[in-house]
Design a binder for these strands. Structure first.
Lengths: 217, 217
DNA sequence: ATACTAAGTAGTAATTTAATACTAACTTAA
DNA sequence: TTAAGTTAGTATTAAATTACTACTTAGTAT
């Protein structure tokens, strides 16, 4: 049998298949807290409960494309940090049917968020104050938070949570919130020194010495 | 509409679905090299090329269960370190049809490997010597290797690659191979001191001073 | 016995992290 | 207009970790 013949005879609908969905945990830091985007469900199952934005995977899109599409449709956001997290395959995680969920997490600076009218239902909630969510979405958020906490030490993902121009106290605060610990100012600055470049601008207006504004190198 | 009614009316076969498979990268360290289990394919597509062990996900098993089953069926191994790696969703990664692959990686001590007759076709190949593989399996292996390299620094996964009883030179060699760098003996020992416990046994037979045998604490 | 080899330990220099304290530059209120 | 309050930013030092060298130890081989 040649490869041609083989492929022609292959019938992919011979076996029952699970559905595949993408769930997205969009994180930001607002009011000095890690927050995540949630929306109240208006259909069964878990009607009226908060859930992560989600969508089914189309046959004509990759998983990354699907995640980007979902994020864009639900928030209007494009070109923000987006990374696959974990794939959840418990049999009864959705009471309708077998759904395998590929979860993603995304990071966006608070300043960049502009939810339009139609997206008003979706809101950010402080991760620490979240109680029960639909499906296994609490686990997804916890897993995402853990991933961020690990990756912040050996990648630049923290910069995805500040605007293009930022001060060092702002950046340090991001690290402190994600790591959940206080850092030493001088040491922090030494550590990130090679990743940033100063601008001529200063941020004043507070009742204390203004801080210099930096950009990512 | 109540939840009961909703679920009854819900028809999950309304939409076309991708297939979902699990691919497994089983790593070991043999001959001072990181090696991975591969098997020559005997069907289309990619016939006669080397590929990772894989299986389709059954409707009655979770992803983790599926991975465990695949591993057991292909190698007879049970109760070894197994962790989900990444889910691959390129549209044309399989020419037969849309297949989403949830990849796992597993770690086993070389000493524990006993491939039976029927599994003879599957063999370990040094990761550094692998050329072209079927599907996107090279990417999976590279991703797995990277995950291990990161996780070895903040978890105990290295112990999954040595037998229950091991010497410190053996353990250090595992770290050096995975990190691809030489480590300092004294420092290494300080670092892992709280994770190990000495036994009374020594490993001799080499033409030099014998080394003490340790266990994981 | 002596040489050879890797195991294991000691010690020290260099670097990083922990901690404290200071000076600088703004706002506010006396 | 001056002093107090506040945070920005720098300096300094102690403690801990990592980098590196060198030694002692306990086997095997000749």
């Amino acid at each position: 049998m040649t490869e041609q013949e083989f492929l022609k005879n292959y019938n992919s609908s011979d076996y029952e298949k699970p559905s595949v969905a993408v769930d997205i945990a969009l994180f930001t830091i607002r009011d000095n807290q890690l927050q995540v985007l949630l929306k109240k469900r208006n259909t069964h199952p878990f009607v009226n409960m908060l859930a992560l934005p989600a969508t089914f995977v189309g046959m004509d899109e990759t998983l990354d494309e699907c995640a980007q599409r979902a994020l864009y449709q639900k928030t209007g956001l494009q070109n923000i940090y987006l990374e696959q997290l974990y794939t959840w395959g418990e049999i009864d995680r959705d009471p309708r049917m077998r759904i395998i969920s590929v979860s993603y997490y995304a990071l966006v600076p608070d300043s960049q968020i502009q939810l339009s009218e139609s997206e008003q239902e979706a809101k950010f909630y402080p991760v620490d104050e979240i109680k029960t969510l639909a499906f296994d979405h609490e686990k997804i958020i916890a897993y995402g938070r853990e991933r961020i906490r690990n990756k912040i030490n050996y990648t630049d993902i923290a910069f995805s949570l500040v605007p293009e121009e930022f001060t060092l106290p702002q950046l340090q605060k991001i690290y402190e919130i994600l790591l959940n610990q206080k850092l030493y100012k001088a040491n922090f600055r030494k550590k990130i020194a090679d990743k940033i470049q100063p601008t001529e601008k200063m941020l004043s207006g507070n009742k204390h010495r203004p801080s210099r504004i930096y950009k990512k190198k």
